[in-house]
Amino acid sequence: MIEKIIVNIGLESDIVTARQQGKKLAKHLDFSSSELTTIATAISELARNIVDYAGGGEIILKLIQQNGKQGIAIVARDNGPGIKDLELAMQDGYSTGKGLGLGLPGTKRLMDDFEIFSEIGKGTTIIVKKWRKQNAC
């Protein structure tokens, strides 16, 4: 079983590749179809951020385990300009670019865990996780 996939993000067509790969990997864990759509949507938003704001980067998709729980982690990493004000960037409706300003706060709502690290001039790394529901049947 493949447990880790790296998708280089440079062009807008890579966004579709990333979300397809993510969905394929997440299918190994019996996520519901609704959860698969949620994961693919989150990957799409993260990949688009890289294309729009950083010009390039990568999406790393990983199957993870923690305390008996299984899930998928998505790491979105770029060497772009970084985010000046993280608190502001996490607010609904705030956007410096062409989006709706829902990308980051929306992605946080879609996933279970959300971490963001950003350094001006160095880049941004966002790690999100979705855990498989334990009592799902």
Binding site: T37, T38, G106, L110
Partner: peptide, 14 residues
């Protein structure tokens, strides 16, 4: 718009 897609859209705020 499919049910799963609608669900994700609402969470995203679309």
């Amino acid at each position: 718009i499919q049910p799963d897609v609608a669900f994700s859209m609402v969470q995203l705020g679309l």
